[in-house]
């Protein structure tokens, strides 16, 4: 699947303006660019777990979606779209529908890694022909920046606040893409906003047009929760990739493929420093926390290289 940037940008917009996400939100950047993976003329039904994206893009009576859209609840985006896809199959079988539809559902990391995990796992295991897209901003942003299992270690969140006895979140983040890959689904990929969105676009198109279940994990920075300078989102994403904090990879039919290897892996400080949620790591005496963070990034990167070398 080739990528012609200008032609891709020339496609009709499938997420209308007038939604109420914060200025500079990474979530809708992810959505717009995923939807550009749809071929013109193909219809889609979009699912959505409860979260910022849902309350902001379908605030009655204003829908920002140019396709059919269903929000059900927080923890069941996978199951809800399973039912929609089941309806599509049944209506096709009965000769009541001629058109081609694709099924894409969006959830934040809270609705995907945590409360919606069972529903997601079920939808993946049953191999429905749908794409689950997690826009991962590493916390429950809609309810006010509480930690999730996607929150990186040491992040200062409202439920893992930094204090005299606390360095932020004590645990590492869950590796959800690997967990979904272990479901043996046809396609899993991790991406973010880099390389003029080529990586994200190609993976979206593959995910949408690969028959069966597909999962995309997209790092989508949140200026409120991460506390960086809002216009710098693209730089934050680039640093996430160049430090190997957020590697770009895909798993196609069980085969792990590394999509990008930095020529010179940058130190993790470069990714953490611009973000207010990690400010405490740069206090004198906390160097050991940075070392521990770096060690964790290195361990995961080596693990990924090993998986991709097989």
């Amino acid at each position: 699947m080739s990528y012609n940037f200008k032609e891709t940008m020339n496609k009709p917009e499938r997420l209308a303006p007038g939604h109420r996400m914060c200025a500079g939100c990474g979530g809708t950047i992810a959505v717009r660019n995923v939807l550009r993976g749809l071929h013109e003329g193909d219809r889609a039904v979009i699912g959505n777990a409860t979260g910022c994206l849902e309350v902001s893009t379908f605030t009655y009576p204003y829908t920002a979606w140019e396709d059919s859209y269903i929000h059900n609840a927080f923890e069941n985006a996978g199951a809800t779209l399973s039912g929609v896809e089941g309806a599509y199959k049944a209506l096709k079988r009965k000769g009541k529908l001629d058109e081609t539809y694709k099924f894409i559902t969006f959830g934040g990391d809270g609705g995907t890694y945590d409360i919606g995990f069972q529903s997601l796992s079920g939808a993946m295991e049953r191999n429905h022909d749908l794409v689950y897209v997690c826009y991962d901003n590493g916390a429950y942003m809609n309810t006010g920046i509480q930690r999730s299992s996607a929150t990186p270690m040491y992040a200062d969140t409202t439920t893992t606040p930094v204090g005299s006895q606390s360095n932020g979140k004590p645990q590492n983040r869950k590796d959800l893409a690997a967990i979904i890959a272990a479901h043996d689904v046809p396609y899993v990929a991790q991406t973010t906003f880099v390389q003029n969105f080529k990586d994200l676009h190609v993976k979206s198109e593959k995910a949408i047009y690969t028959p069966g279940a597909a999962f995309l994990n997209i790092m989508a920075p949140c200026p409120r929760g991460w506390r960086y300078n809002t216009p710098d989102i693209m730089e934050i994403c680039r640093l996430g990739v160049e430090t190997c904090y957020w590697p770009l990879f895909e798993v196609e039919e069980g085969k792990w493929i590394l999509n990008y290897e930095p020529k010179k892996k940058l130190p993790i400080e470069d990714f953490l420093r611009p973000q207010g949620r990690f400010k405490h790591l740069f206090k004198k005496g906390n160097e050991y926390l940075l070392e521990a963070f770096q060690k964790e990034v290195d361990r995961r990167w080596d693990e990924l290289l090993f998986r991709c070398s097989r």
């Binding site: 020339n10 209308a16 996400m21 200025a23 939100c25 979530g27 809708t28 003029n196």
Partner: peptide
């Protein structure tokens, strides 16, 4: 592609003026 608010319209491979009705100034 970087606009979170779909405020940079494209027509015939060319961008147009900003949609200030919706641009949040990020």
């Amino acid at each position: 592609p970087v606009c979170p608010d779909s405020c940079i319209p494209v027509e015939d491979m060319k961008r147009g003026v900003f949609d200030y009705k919706h641009c949040k100034g990020c």
